[in-house]
Amino acid sequence: MVMEIVCPAGTPAALRAAVKAGAHTIYCGFADETNARNFPGLNFSRAEMAEGIAFAHARGAKVLVAINTYPRAGDESLWHAAVADAETAGADAVILADLGLLAYAAGNHPNLRRHLSVQAAAANADIINFYGAEFGVKRVVLPRVLSVPEIAAINKETEIETEVFVFGGLCVMAEGRCSLSSYATGLSPNMNGVCSPASHVDYVEDAGALSAKLGGYTIHAVGADEPAPYPTLCKGCFTAGEKTAHLFEDPVSLNAEHLIPQLAKAGVTALKIEGRQRSRSYVAQVVKNFRAAVEAVDQGRALPEGMLARLSEGQAVTTGAYKKTWR
């Protein structure tokens, strides 16, 4: 069976591009704090969501609605409304992270399929089975901390589908629990749906050198011939003592296209592409490549040569935790 390609869409145009390029499934969010890509100019109104879902369904594709931030005390109704509106719009599933919201969705919208967001950081079979038993979760997006053998071990102990990231930006290792952005800006992906908000980011070019600032703090500066620096603290470059280095992680993107055969053998159901903040051009290109790759794997053919290099943030790629060479 062909592995499912789950593709990002930050705008209706990106959703259409993804469907036309061959995505089996598209994930997107409403234009508010309920999803973890709450960026300026991005996301869907209620009407756009309904239209996008109708467009996808007419062409045999599914749409998942990410409601994967953590409801703020006293404002839970915003998140509850998002779940209800996703169901009304015809979503095939909602992607949730918060335990309370999962309980709310299971109790009030039992027929709406529930997926567990990567933001929940469920990284072993016990917790995954707990989410399945208590909240009827049908699929779990695994955090990007697991090796391929660890994913295989999880799939042996659970009937719940697993979805793994194969391409795009990497996140600091404790997804859903990271407060780095809050320290510099007061806003975080967990609560506000935005990591390193653009309103707090400044890029300053001086004689070819480019500095990235977040909340007024310079977090990385590069020379004229280097790739532009990330605006996130986790990929910043800092000096401690006499050593200057990327303290948390290197500014690289994930590209696990060559691991698709191993991920298939490990029992993974779906392959997820990161990048709801990216353009429709990115979406179309990445989907075409991965669709061709999963079909080749399904038919026992060699993987086609990828063309994804230029689309990588930071201009460098890694297989991340899937191959833990540092162990």
Binding site: G41, V201, Y203, V204, P227, A228, S281, Y282, L311, E313
Partner: peptide
């Protein structure tokens, strides 16, 4: 083209209000 890819490769420069530039791009 993809705006992020052009920005990280330094083919594109963004200065000033990053949020406004991002909103326009999107």
């Amino acid at each position: 083209y993809d705006g992020d890819a052009l920005f990280f490769s330094r083919d594109l420069v963004i200065e000033g209000d990053t949020a406004a530039a991002l909103a326009l791009r999107n």
